[in-house]
């Protein structure tokens, strides 16, 4: 299968992996004072912290599983870099949805994940991408792009906004997505996965996990 088409498939929000339940914590951010004006900066903060960790994790999971290894250490490295239980839970929920879909489309892709009770989305996506033959750069760009689209499409549901403005934010963030991919594409070992934390996003994610007034799960 053509790799570019596979990347399109995996990046498509119509893929049934519960992407519509995610806001990239922007719902909580907007509830706690972030304005739509701040969204481009918020995207950049994510791409340089939590999303960088996620992309690095996926790239290393891809590398390890393609070499015939198991991604347990990779998933553990991700968990140690994700102190917020709410963020871990959100990622594991998405990991479960992606595993469910991949189990139907590419069952052999999941072999390295056997024995991991609740792998992160990054670990699952990296493993699946490796099975499909996607390169590390494509994988990292996919994660960065998906994060940006997740936030921007969530903002459209939460705040009155011209959709073209949100698309403009996505387009403007693309160089930052490319930079993220360059930073992680060559990683091969768990210890080298970036560990940039974002205490503010963690605070928002935890607050969101316990509120009943929400549109998005995370």
């Amino acid at each position: 299968m053509h790799h570019e088409l596979l990347v399109m498939l995996l990046a498509d929000s119509r893929l049934p992996v519960a992407g519509h339940t995610q806001s990239g914590t922007v719902e909580a951010a907007l509830a706690h004072g972030l304005t739509t004006h701040d969204v481009p900066a918020y995207l950049q903060t994510r791409l340089r912290s939590v999303t960088l960790v996620e992309a690095g994790t996926a790239v290393v999971a891809r590398h390890v599983t393609r070499a015939g290894g198991r991604p347990d250490d990779v998933d553990r490295a991700w968990a140690a870099r994700t102190p917020s239980p709410a963020l871990r839970q959100a990622s594991r929920g998405q990991g479960r949805a992606l595993k469910h879909l991949a189990g139907k489309l590419w069952p052999e892709a999941l072999v390295p994940l056997v024995g991991l009770a609740a792998p992160s989305r990054a670990t699952v996506l990296g493993t699946v991408a490796g099975h499909l033959g996607l390169g590390p750069g494509s994988l990292a760009r996919l994660i960065g792009y998906d994060d940006v689209q997740t936030v921007c499409s969530a903002v459209l549901k939460l705040a009155p906004l011209d959709p073209a403005v949100a698309s403009g934010w996505v387009a403007a963030a693309l160089p930052e997505v490319a930079a993220l991919a360059d930073q992680v594409a060559d990683l091969t070992v768990p210890d080298r996965i970036p560990a940039v934390g974002c205490p503010q996003i963690e605070v928002w994610a935890e607050a969101h996990a316990v509120t009943s007034r929400r549109l998005f799960r995370a």
């Binding site: 900066a41 918020y42 950049q44 903060t45 340089r48 912290s49 553990r76 490295a77 140690a80 870099r81 102190p83 768990p190 970036p194 560990a195 940039v196 934390g197 974002c198 205490p199 503010q200 605070v203």
Partner: peptide, 26 residues
């Protein structure tokens, strides 16, 4: 030998608004 907490916080005038919500104390 297993990682419990691994974190980098690159804090300066440009990143404090995003990473710490503009707060001075952590």
């Amino acid at each position: 030998g297993l990682p419990l907490l691994v974190e980098d916080l690159p804090l300066d005038v440009t990143t404090v608004p995003g990473l710490l919500g503009g707060n001075r104390g952590l």
